[in-house]
Design a protein around this nucleic acid. Structure first.
Lengths: 200, 200
DNA sequence: CATCCCCTAGAACGAACGCTCTACCTAGAG
DNA sequence: CTCTAGGTAGAGCGTTCGTTCTAGGGGATG
């Protein structure tokens, strides 16, 4: 079937992509060890044969690809939030608001797409660790650019970007575990306040 | 053998406690699904029979108890850091320094004792969720008290305490994944700066 | 029509999973 | 001594795990 669409029929997303999406979603909710390949193939409506055809590296390769998927997903949200206002404080709280909305909408199930898997595989699955490191670097760069655009010095922007990411990460974690938007909103306000001290 | 010590022999920590300690350590490093009961019994030098004797509720009850153990462990560190200086800024950075030291000393293996398990079991193991919620509340209360002692208003103290905890959580996560103390140190400085804006 | 290759299909493997169960050991009470 | 009971010991249950492997389906090309 290749990638060609027969006539005007269903352009059903390709098998490979369905597998990646399903893996990403399942890893986000159940973690690495808690997710089985058979469950993935079931959820993706693909067969075991297809999974291993596209990902001969097995579970690890599959997880690494899913992490890359989650990376982009989070980056999109980050860009949307940070680009939503000229005012830096508003831009940052827009991020926490977006995260809170998505988290609540999923009934507190969908936190950060990669945290759980990243933690479980630390120090024992280099392929995954690599993808995780790239995701963090990517997010950090997005934030850093926005801070510089707001007139914050290069050095401060770099350091602050890291703190912004890890604070968002921590706040989303807390919000998910407490089943409450409050930790995200509070952190958003506090982040905005912190950043405002760099532009008098 | 009960709890009585025969003469002046080894007061070898009781079997139950060995099991809890081993579980806590393993959950911290491998997460909930990644840790097997048989591995726990092996590591704790106890038999499967003993494990189920002390924890008839099985893996979930065991994990909940281990979370409580990790709760206290983190609380001790928090109290040590926060009590190390009259100056609030110094007290906070003392916490991040302590966390960074322990993290590095374990070769980036021992992050927060409960995060991984908490994330994996969210929404599917009420006994564990309960223990997790109590831990977070406990830590938050410890920080809140210190902020009030520093002269920050009750309302601000409550909100800030939550942010402090989740920032520490996020920074430790980032540090562990990046194998670097830097995220923790940066967050410590930024937290100190944020808090200083509440006491002019 | 035949040929090719990408992809699908799922049975089967050994290992590990959480948990149950019976048997046994041993210290203290009577 | 006997009796009791808290604790130890590990074989074994049914299930699921990640992975391998062989066989077949079906457009595109000759």
């Amino acid at each position: 079937m290749k990638t060609a669409v027969k006539s005007a029929e269903k352009p059903t997303t390709g098998t490979r992509e369905r597998i990646v999406r399903a893996t990403s979603r399942l890893l986000q909710r159940q973690g690495y060890e808690g997710t089985g390949i058979k469950q993935i193939s079931r959820e993706a409506e693909a067969t075991l044969g297809s999974v291993y055809h596209f990902f001969p590296g097995g579970k690890q390769e599959l997880a690494a690809e899913a992490i890359r998927h989650g990376d982009e997903e989070f980056a999109v949200l980050l860009r949307a939030g940070l680009g939503s206002s000229e005012d830096l404080a508003e831009a940052v709280t827009a991020c926490t608001t977006l995260l809170a909305r998505e988290l609540r909408a999923s009934d507190w199930q969908d936190g950060c797409p990669i945290t759980s898997t990243a933690l479980e595989t630390v120090g024992r699955a280099p392929v995954i660790e690599q993808a995780v490191a790239e995701a963090f670097a990517n997010w950090r760069a997005i934030v850093e650019e926005r801070l510089r655009a707001a007139g914050i010095g290069p050095e401060d922007s770099r350091e602050l970007a890291g703190t912004v990411i890890s604070t968002l990460e921590g706040a989303e974690l807390a919000a998910q575990l407490a089943r409450s938007e409050e930790p995200l909103h509070a952190s958003g306000r506090h982040l905005a306040r912190l950043l405002s001290t760099y532009r008098p």
